[in-house]
Amino acid sequence: MKVLVAVKRVVDYNVKVRPKADGSDVDTANVKMSINPFCEIAVEEAVRLKEKGVASEIVVVSMGPKQCQEQIRTALALGADRGIQVETDAELQPLAVAKCLKAIVEKEEPQLVILGKQSIDGDNNQTGQMLAALTGMGQGTFASEVNVEGESVKVTREIDGGLQTVELTLPAVVTTDLRLNEPRYASLPNIMKAKRKPLDVTTPDELGVDIAPRTKTLKVEPPAERQAGIKVADVAELVEKLKSEAKVI
């Protein structure tokens, strides 16, 4: 079966971003960009499905400016077979991304679509659920285990109270949580090979999708800073302070 994986280019998780001085946006000039960690887990899961003989082809898609081809190549080096870039320099919000993905799903007809549960820049946690809604597919969100069994997929989900397992009819959408797997590192030969794998470029226009933003960011600012308090000498002083000063125990 064919598996479609969506990946996003984001500011690397080691970079501490700051708002620009005018508060218009975050400062992303000259910072390291990477594949979103949750998306990397999605790619890894697809590759494992292929290694198990469940998946026959892995198509990886990313949206954004020319540079997001780097993240597609990263996914190809990890084991995906071919890439699709939806090229645009415009701001893309999750609803627009879900609509573009829907158009690609209609063309490619994958049996499984795997996405990260959220990106570490916008922290929205929306795209997978919205793609599932628009295509009428079932959704296995926040997955920590994925098992394809015949015409369905069993997904164990990380929920607030523990774990929940659901069974979805294929085709279905899965979004990954952190503990689904540990992504491998791409080997140098595979990085070289990835450069020759096919990568098609399309646009939201060609897909017939209106990507006009629905929300506007008016301002970005740093969060309220919390002041460091005092150091206590020992446990006795700590208990004393909590009782008489903070009055919380």
Binding site: Q93, P94, L95, A98, D123, N124, N125, Q126, T127, Q129, M130, L131, A132, A133, L134, Q139, T141, F142, R157, E158, I159, D160, P213, R214, T215
Partner: peptide, 23 residues
């Protein structure tokens, strides 16, 4: 914004053709 809410709400929003605002 619990796991139940985060699972359900974007699905509802997409059906309403709305870009939801998380958290």
């Amino acid at each position: 914004a619990t796991t139940t809410g985060k699972n359900m709400l974007p699905r509802a929003a997409a059906l309403l053709d709305v870009q939801p605002i998380s958290d």
